[in-house]
């Protein structure tokens, strides 16, 4: 019984991680930037959800508007800040996104993020369902389905649209892509925008479960990093599998051994992975 409900929670956490790590993977794939500000964007999404629903907007509208807004913030950040260091060594992008994370966290602190805020579950999604003797909270199922739907939409879009073709081309071989007329700078604006929107969607959808405060995304960021390393940096399907693996490990670890030990177990697993399979589950991650 405990195992079953832990499994459900693991899937929920995995789904939230999935939305964050897909964005990380895309930004890394196209821009070769490891985005340390991704957790801050998650927090921004969660806080935006609280502000919008505090302004009286219904949950559904919040769930659409907050990611849109944060996505726009992402585009602006890329255009105004990240674009300045496109040709610098990788170290600079790590430092820069780290500074961004601090800046966003600082802004959130000033806007009420010091205290834990609650985003209520919408009334339609309250309650529980019983499936074969298991009682499942409806809202958690909804979050998982939302994550799966968004992921599927993103993957289909990547596979079938011109935009997706460009992203995949820039991911595989940036120089060749540039020769074929792909404007990597502008492509990056859209990639960062979409990734930020995904992180924010995870933040809003997760807010009724994880609550909302300025640093709510920090733990998610660490876990999302572990996810992309396990899946292989730059590998989308690796990230999908790894997100659920990490979610389950963390939740089961928390259930049986306590949360901090779970984190340590995960770290050891990641270290072991890196020794044995540095390119992730599908062997397609980058090691350069």
């Amino acid at each position: 019984m405990l195992a079953a409900s832990l499994a459900v929670n693991g899937v929920v956490l995995g789904s939230v991680l999935l939305m964050c790590s897909l964005g990380l993977t895309l930004i890394y794939g196209v821009g070769r930037i490891v985005n340390f500000a991704h957790g801050a964007l998650f927090s921004l999404g969660a806080m935006a959800g609280v502000w919008l629903s505090g302004a009286g907007l219904p949950f559904w509208l919040t769930l659409i508007l907050a990611p849109l807004g944060v996505g726009l913030v992402g585009v602006v950040l890329d255009w105004a800040i990240l674009a300045r260091i496109r040709h610098r060594p990788m170290v600079d992008s790590l430092l820069l996104t780290f500074g961004l994370a601090l800046l966003i966290t600082g802004v959130l602190y000033e806007l009420g993020g010091r205290n834990v805020q609650i985003l209520p579950v919408p009334s339609q999604l309250e309650g529980i369902v019983s499936v074969g003797g298991l009682t499942l909270p409806i809202y958690r199922i909804f979050v998982s389905l939302l994550a799966v739907a968004l992921t599927a939409a993103l993957l289909l879009f990547l596979r079938n649209s011109t935009w997706g073709l460009r992203v995949r081309a820039a991911n595989d071989d940036p120089e060749m892509g540039a020769c074929l007329g792909i404007d990597r700078g502008r492509l990056m604006h859209s990639v960062v925008g979409i990734s930020a929107a995904l992180a924010a969607a995870a933040g809003v959808a997760g807010a009724p479960i994880f609550t909302a405060f300025a640093t709510v995304g920090d733990k998610i960021l660490i876990l999302a990093f572990m996810t992309v390393i396990l899946g292989g940096l730059g590998s989308l399907r690796g990230a999908v599998v790894a997100a659920y693996a990490v979610g389950l490990i963390i939740v089961f670890g928390e259930g049986y051994f306590g949360g901090q030990l779970a984190l340590m177990a995960l770290f050891l697993l990641v270290m072991a992975m890196l020794i044995k399979w540095p390119r992730g589950f599908f062997g397609e991650g980058r090691t350069e």
Partner: peptide, 27 residues
């Protein structure tokens, strides 16, 4: 293990290591 990693993986793993030490204080 850590120094065998390339730059970004190293950066991420050192961050994770510090989080684990942080967790240890509470354990």
């Amino acid at each position: 293990v850590l120094v065998r990693q390339i730059g970004k993986t190293f950066a991420i793993l050192t961050l994770a290591l510090s989080q684990i030490m942080f967790a240890l204080v509470f354990v």
